Amino acid sequence: MLTPIQLQAIRDVVATGSLRATAKRLGYTPSAVSQQITSVERTLGVALFERSPRSVRPTAAGAQLARRAARLLAELEAAEDETRSFATAERGRLHLGSFWSAGFRLVPEVLAAFLRDRPQVDVRYEEGDPQTVTPAVGDGRLDLAVVFEYGTVPHKWPADLAMTLILEEPLYVLVPMAHRLAGRRRIRIGDLSDERWICYREGTDAARSLFHICAEGGFRPEVLFRTNDYNLPYELVRKGLGVAMVPELAMIESPEVQAIRLADPSHVRRVFALHRAADPNPLLEQAIGMLRTAAAPIADGLARTDLPTAV
């Protein structure tokens, strides 16, 4: 098997017509270059150069091999550059998964930045709740996932996955503008014990969180309507059919619905970026940084409005 050093020697001797010039270019002695060529001739059983005291001239076989060597070495150099570009995050793969509200509020910033600044990166996205995207990260189908955990419903995440906190978002109760509690900035969950509730599907973390929080307030919520559509609770609340609990990322503008923040600071939902701890992908750090940047205006807005308020 010909080696890159042998191919370089043959290519450059044909190009320069000189063992000495080739040796200087490659950083070897003329004798070492000659030995490389002689080794190839012996292995292939063909003379590659006509040698004289003053020059070396390629044979037909030598000229053909030099042309092929130039192409092969160019391919090797391209392969090196291409592979090195993975280390510098100019190429690579970023397959990202996320739950709906983070996919709506945070992920587009990341996807747009990668497609704009890293056009040679294979960027893909799929939506899914934490129970779906977490195993996909573990088995390599996804590189990074945005997941959540309610303060009252902690998860036991796989030990081989690394987690970075992106955002801690408060929980709000949605009430119609004509509601008896409308106008408050904070509310205790116990003030809602007699309400009808609109809730996400039974068995979801959001539903379990609602029941845990209400239990802390000393009551069990009367849930009349269940949906996993993030928009429908606003419409049901607007019609006066009940109240609902939503996290910050799921908030939408609705002039006929007021969102009142829960007074207990432990009633939050935490958003994490999750990836395999052993994954050396340099794109992960960039993507996590972009997610935190996208979340910063939300966190800053919460900080500005998080003032003591009578409830």
Results as ranks from 00 to 15, higher is better:
residue 36 Q to L: 07
residue 124 R to L: 06
residue 129 D to T: 00
residue 78 A to R: 12
residue 112 A to H: 09
residue 78 A to I: 03
residue 139 D to N: 06
residue 107 V to W: 03
residue 90 E to K: 11
residue 81 D to M: 14
residue 60 A to Y: 10
residue 53 P to C: 07
residue 87 A to S: 07
residue 119 P to D: 07
residue 138 G to H: 00
residue 128 G to L: 04
residue 124 R to E: 08
residue 83 T to R: 13
residue 125 Y to F: 12
residue 52 S to F: 12
residue 81 D to E: 15
residue 65 L to I: 15
residue 125 Y to C: 05
residue 60 A to S: 05
residue 130 P to I: 00
residue 120 Q to K: 12
residue 113 A to W: 12
residue 64 Q to G: 14
residue 73 L to Y: 08
residue 90 E to G: 09
residue 135 P to C: 01
residue 56 V to C: 09
residue 102 A to D: 05
residue 36 Q to T: 01
residue 81 D to A: 12
residue 133 V to F: 01
residue 135 P to V: 00
residue 30 P to C: 07
residue 138 G to I: 00
residue 116 R to S: 15
residue 52 S to G: 13
residue 49 F to T: 01
residue 120 Q to E: 07
residue 53 P to A: 14
residue 123 V to T: 07
residue 65 L to P: 03
residue 116 R to M: 11
residue 98 S to H: 05
residue 120 Q to T: 09
residue 71 R to S: 15
residue 93 R to W: 08
residue 64 Q to A: 15
residue 30 P to K: 02
residue 80 E to G: 11
residue 49 F to L: 11
residue 44 L to W: 06
residue 103 G to F: 13
residue 88 T to E: 05
residue 53 P to M: 07
residue 121 V to F: 06
residue 51 R to T: 06
residue 34 S to G: 08
residue 88 T to G: 08
residue 73 L to C: 09
residue 99 F to P: 03
residue 38 T to G: 00
residue 86 F to I: 12
residue 61 A to D: 12
residue 137 V to W: 01
residue 120 Q to Y: 10
residue 98 S to T: 10
residue 101 S to I: 04
residue 75 E to P: 02
residue 69 A to Y: 07
residue 79 A to D: 15
residue 46 V to W: 05
residue 67 R to T: 13
residue 32 A to D: 02
residue 57 R to P: 06
residue 66 A to Q: 13
residue 117 D to V: 13
residue 80 E to C: 12
residue 38 T to I: 06
residue 49 F to P: 03
residue 81 D to C: 07
residue 116 R to N: 05
residue 109 E to P: 06
residue 126 E to W: 00
residue 120 Q to G: 04
residue 113 A to L: 08
residue 58 P to L: 09
residue 42 R to P: 04
residue 119 P to V: 13
residue 37 I to D: 01
residue 40 V to N: 02
residue 136 A to W: 01
residue 39 S to L: 11
residue 72 L to P: 09
residue 64 Q to I: 11
residue 113 A to E: 14
residue 137 V to R: 01
residue 126 E to K: 04
residue 41 E to A: 06
residue 67 R to N: 11
residue 45 G to S: 04
residue 42 R to M: 06
residue 62 G to V: 10
residue 114 F to E: 12
residue 65 L to Y: 11
residue 111 L to T: 14
residue 64 Q to E: 15
residue 82 E to K: 12
residue 102 A to C: 07
residue 69 A to W: 10
residue 120 Q to C: 09
residue 129 D to S: 03
residue 57 R to H: 15
residue 119 P to T: 05
residue 90 E to Y: 01
residue 86 F to N: 02
residue 67 R to A: 15
residue 42 R to G: 08
residue 116 R to E: 08
residue 46 V to I: 14
residue 128 G to Q: 01
residue 60 A to T: 04
residue 88 T to M: 09
residue 52 S to N: 06
residue 55 S to I: 09
residue 123 V to Y: 05
residue 38 T to P: 00
residue 57 R to S: 14
residue 43 T to K: 10
residue 88 T to Q: 01
